[in-house]
Simulated assay, not measured.
Amino acid sequence: MPAPIIGRKLGISKIPQLEKEKVKGIKVLGISGSSRQQPEMSKSERLLASALDHAKNLGAETEFIRLKDLKIYDCEGNYSENPTLCTYPCQSSMKYQDDQMQRVYDAILSTDVLILATPIRWNNHSALVQKFVERMNCIENSDILFGKKLIKNKVAGLIVIGHVDGLQHVAGNLLNFFSWLGFNSPDVAITSWVGEYDEDTTKDWEQIQKNKYTQEDLENMVNSSINLAYNLKKG
């Protein structure tokens, strides 16, 4: 009797790439939520760089933002005082002259595809990503409260990397967040990797690079995101 098929032994189907002439003009924004001191230390950020490289090779315009490099003030919860105080542009951006969240807003509002990369921190996304999520509340409120929909025909994907369980929890929370903002999810919305239980992080990057399923998901996430962005722009 043959052994049962377990997991993804058969792999997954490759999502076809669009012709370069169709990809031309599509913008892909990568946002890193890693707090590592040096960029090359972050595995989620390295995967994000690979995703942006693939998008660029397909013919897309790419932009990269590292949240750690920006001075972003905490959300001050103005919604709790009065919902009309939490709308775009954000009160904190206007209140603090050195707040740099506006750069993130501008990049998101001008992109077609957003790929957010985060490590897993105690079963959740990183603190930097949480700050980003809370500061995006003004975008969502602009639609819910005032009918001013700022996120239209945009696609969002995720890169989630960790060494403990929590992948589905993190991905579920963030995809729900993007849905509330108005983003569309591609056929393959998540690229992920979770390390061995031995927690030997010194060998992680080598394993990530060798993991064919993570690499397939990365390519398919970019391909399906760009394909969906093209169809949304085409109408």
Rank of each mutant, 00 (worst) to 15 (best):
F132P: 01
I12G: 06
I144N: 05
S192F: 11
L10V: 12
Q91Y: 15
K212R: 14
A156I: 00
N153R: 06
L109I: 06
E206Y: 04
G30R: 06
I31C: 06
H54W: 12
V222P: 02
A107R: 04
L116N: 10
Q97L: 11
I12T: 08
D74P: 11
K14V: 08
V160D: 07
T202A: 04
K131H: 09
S80H: 13
N123V: 14
L175K: 08
Q209T: 00
K20N: 11
I144D: 11
S93W: 07
E61H: 08
V194E: 08
K148D: 14
S110I: 11
S80N: 14
Q102F: 12
R121Q: 14
Y96A: 05
L58E: 02
A55C: 02
D204Y: 01
V113G: 01
W205P: 01
N176L: 09
P4V: 01
S224W: 01
Y96W: 11
I6H: 02
G172W: 02
L145R: 08
D74L: 10
S110M: 09
Y79P: 05
K9N: 09
G147V: 07
V164Q: 09
T201N: 10
K68P: 06
T118S: 14
I226R: 00
D112G: 03
F177E: 12
K56G: 05
G162C: 05
W122Y: 15
N227K: 13
G166Y: 05
